[in-house]
């Protein structure tokens, strides 16, 4: 790729152009350097030395391979681990429709029971029921969360 849209500054060392040319993905080719820069290079030993160093740096960088050497078995094992981990995450993140329906039904049943008791009991009796329910609420929540966790853990173990 040519360094288009930017002319090397007249009378100054075109270091930026040289750096870009030396670090092109396809490697350094003198042809890819703008003509003005090539002219400058011919008369400037400093820039030639700079370019040589950049090219040598690039060559040294090539000592490292782009891909890691890793056996197919290791790769397959890593991918399987990732698939299993993603499956566990998905199971934890998404409660299934039966759980959701269960919670909705439970909330509906509680509301229905309250409405019925409001009809059947005297105000004092209903208040006593409310107090008992308030006291029991944390325990109920605890049981529900424990059940939910057990269901989730079981499903996660299956993936």
């Amino acid at each position: 790729m040519r360094t288009r849209g930017r002319q090397p500054t007249q009378g100054r060392h075109p270091r930026v152009d040289l750096l870009e040319a030396a670090w092109m993905p396809a490697g350094f080719h003198l042809d890819s350097v703008p003509a003005e820069v090539r002219d400058h290079l011919e008369g400037c030993p400093e820039c030639r030395a700079f370019l040589d160093e950049l090219v040598a740096t690039r060559r040294l960088a090539g000592a490292l391979p782009a891909e890691a050497e890793v056996s197919l078995l290791e790769v397959q094992a890593a991918v399987r681990r990732a698939v299993a981990a993603a499956g566990r995450q998905a199971a934890v993140a998404q409660p299934n429709w039966r759980e959701r329906l269960g919670f909705v039904l439970m909330a509906g049943a509680m509301l229905g029971a309250q409405a019925l008791l409001l009809e059947l009991l005297e105000p004092a009796g209903f208040m006593a029921f409310q107090v008992a329910l308030n006291w029991l609420a944390p325990f109920l929540f605890y049981i529900i969360f424990r059940l939910d966790n057990r269901v989730t853990d079981k499903r996660a173990g299956e993936t």
């Binding site: 391979p65 890691a68 050497e69």
Partner: peptide, 11 residues
């Protein structure tokens, strides 16, 4: 795809 691209990703 992941199996194919893993060596590059690890690199």
């Amino acid at each position: 795809l992941l199996t194919r691209v893993y060596p590059r990703l690890l690199g």
